[in-house]
C-alpha cells in the first residue's frame, strides 16, 4: 500500500509518519504534485493555522491535485478543516472538497478554548472507517476551530456544543482529533482508512 503524507508545513508530520510505521507502513512525503502520482492513500496532517497551511500547499502546487484526487484522503485536525470551503480562522478559502465552513469554537466557563485533551466520541456511524470504534471511546483533540455537525459528519464530540469529530464524503474523510496521538482508537482509525475505506 503506497501511503503518501502531504507536507502542509505542520509540526505533526513526523508523528503521523511514526504512527503509520507502527502499523507496518512506510509512508512517503509529498512536497509537490508528482509525489501524489501513484498514491493509493493520501493523508493530509496539519498543526498550526489555516492560512499558512493553505499557503504552504499552494506554494508546492498541491491545491489542484488534492482537489482532483481519486484515491481516499484522510485529513487530520487542521488537515480536515482545510477540506472545507472556508475557515473563520484568518478568513481563508480552503480546498473546498467538502461543503461548509470551519468556525471558531465558542468559549464558556466550562468549555475552555483551545479544546485540548481526551474527549469522547458520540453518534458513531456504522461505517468501515469507524469499524471497531464505539461511542464513549476517547480520542485526543487540540484545536480552537471546528466543523459544525452536518450531513458529512460520521462521529461527533461535544465541547460546549457538538461538533464534527470524524467526517466523510466520497473519497474525502477527516478526523478532528489526532489519530497519531489517540492510542488504540487512533491506530484503529488509521488502520481502517488504510485497509478499506470506500472510495
Amino acid at each position: 500500500m503506497r501511503v503518501v503524507v502531504v507536507d502542509a508545513g505542520g509540526a505533526n508530520l513526523g508523528s503521523v509518519c511514526y504512527a503509520l510505521e507502527r502499523l507496518g507502513i512506510a509512508p512517503t512525503i509529498a512536497h509537490e504534485a508528482s509525489d501524489l502520482d501513484d498514491a493509493e492513500r493520501v493523508i493530509l496532517p496539519g498543526v498550526g493555522a489555516a492560512g499558512p497551511a493553505m499557503a504552504c500547499l499552494s506554494a508546492q502546487g498541491l491545491v489542484e491535485p488534492l482537489r482532483r484526487l481519486d484515491v481516499p484522503l484522510l485529513g487530520i485536525c487542521l488537515g480536515m478543516q482545510l477540506l472545507y470551503e472556508a475557515s473563520e480562522e484568518g478568513d481563508i478559502a480552503g480546498l473546498g472538497v467538502l461543503p461548509g465552513k470551519v468556525v471558531r469554537m465558542r468559549e464558556d466557563r466550562v468549555a475552555r478554548v483551545p479544546h485540548m485533551g481526551w474527549n469522547t466520541l458520540s453518534d458513531v456511524r456504522d461505517l468501515p472507517l469507524l469499524d471497531g470504534i464505539r461511542a464513549g471511546d476517547h480520542a485526543f483533540f487540540v484545536h480552537g476551530y471546528a466543523v459544525p455537525v452536518g450531513t458529512d459528519t460520521i462521529a461527533t464530540t461535544t465541547h460546549g456544543a457538538p461538533f464534527s469529530a470524524v467526517v466523510q464524503r466520497g473519497a474525502y474523510s477527516g478526523a478532528q482529533f489526532h489519530p497519531e496521538r489517540s492510542a488504540e482508537v487512533g491506530a484503529r482509525l488509521l488502520r481502517n482508512f488504510i485497509d478499506g475505506v470506500a472510495a
Partner: peptide, 11 residues
C-alpha cells in the same frame, strides 16, 4: 525526542 515520538501514541 524522536525516539519517544516513534514509540508513543499519546501526546
Amino acid at each position: 525526542v524522536e525516539r519517544v515520538a516513534r514509540a508513543l501514541d499519546i501526546p
